[in-house]
Design a protein around this nucleic acid. Sequence first.
DNA 1: GCCGTTTTCGGCCCGACTGTTTTCAGTCG
Length: 561
Amino acid sequence: MGRANDEVAAALTEYADLFAMTGGDAFRVRSYQKAAKAIAGHPEDISQVNVRRVPGVGEAIAKKVEEFLSRGGFRQLDDLRAEVPEGVRRLTRVPSLGPKRAIFLYRELGIDSPEALAAAIGAGRLAGVRGFGAKSEENLLKGVEQLRQAGGRVHLGVAMDLAERVIASLPAERVACAGSVRRMKETVGDIDILAVGPPSLMEHFRRQPYVAEVIASGERKTSVRTREGMQVDLRLVPAGSWGAAMQYFTGSKEHNVRLREMCVKRGWKLSEYGLFEGDRVIAAATEEEIYQALGMPWIPPPLREDTGEVAAALRGELPDLVTLDDLRGDLHTHTNLTDGIAPLADMVAAAARLGYAYYAVTDHAPDLVMQRMTLDKALEQRAALAELQPAYPGMRLLHGTELNIGPDGAVDWPAEVLAGFDVTVASVHSHFTQPRAEMTRRFVAACENPHVHVIGHPTTRKIGRREPVDADWDAVFAAAARTGTALEIDAYPDRADLPSDLVRRARHHGVKFSIDSDSHAVPHLANLRFGVGVAQRGWLTAEDVINAWPVERLLAFLNRA
DNA sequence: GCCGTTTTCGGCCCGACTGTTTTCAGTCG
């Protein structure tokens, strides 16, 4: 999977947005969106193959893609960029504000950014404007604030990708990522890279194509802003204090404060250069020896949040965290039968290449009307899956479905139909603003449905785009534990849902989890690693995760044994 | 703009919700 795919997809998506804003035909807008999605999810590097082979890409889009690949843009995109300022496109990221009203605000009132919108509302400039009543103003203000709070933070998928590109671009003796990316935090503000190497590495870093601006530049630290707007700090560290530097710059700040307090009590000092007693170096080369000197085993970075991990380490009670290698299958994936882009056979073949012992296909169900699912289609898919099974003797294929949890907690299909599925994932897809008590009842009802095995992406948040729903989570977790309903950790990095703090709380209730990719294309299967990050931050072990279990135990959990 | 044993034109995932309106446009999943 090449970077080119993502860059092309981003350009086409931007073009679709701008085209929609400037009154472009809605069907053509959708064509660009569809092509963007298909290219982003295409398993081959788009710069190395004929883009016309990608479904949804015809002659016109292929030409634009080829122009983009050769010079980083295409004419029609340049034209629209000249017409619509960048901030106006950002306006459409304000929830409830779409392309039509965004361009209206720009053309009629000169509002050219979310900040300008908030100012205009504050100054009463929207009063009496057609289509913008008091309620709209209130919602827009709330939306702008939400956007502002997300700040410059991006989800881990974006940050990890950038961090890996930076690391690959640096010819250092040693180079690694520290900071919140290493801790697998769900959102990341900036990226910290540590390296051992010659001073010339700094100049090499500043000249990289991803660098848009050099913010600060010294012998030991260089800070840049990338074209995507992220800050990346590169620090040159002495080889002998690699471990101390990694420990220090991985954080969290709170975790480090806790360790330094311990050091102070012993008359020691812990810095990015090492653990010292006066001038004597106690430990510096590896993180392991630093933690060991403090009387504890190495603490995995995802736990380093000062939420009890130091005490647990001192007692020798750190959890044996679940790892990517522990996962034996994926229980929530889509195909092009609903909103995925890859055919069933391609998804199954890709899963087999990952060495899975089992793999579930869980396309949407009829209540999500837009997906046009029918029982006939589901049964046809079941038959097709059964036909594929003999070709994969080592991998048990499971036929599942992603159900929709309605406002009252009911799901698609009657019980006798549900009983025919190997695994069901039930998720909320609408009515996000129900009051807490109603929302809680809704989830509890879904858990109590004996045919629901997993609650999918429980909070339904989308990082930077949609707030989590409001529910009494402890009540939901208690219901999930009582009914033997697993909660999903949706590994899609803009979801990361359940969030890790709720994972940990749920675990205390005795809940089991399913770490799923929610793949809609072949490359998405690899997102599972982000879900593992969430699980580790939630202190989960393999015992807590149903898709880390052997197939027999999983099937017993699903009542399919 | 894409697509096709319903094929070279005429379709294109469809419905609900919201806030505004007085019959509907915009937004969302």
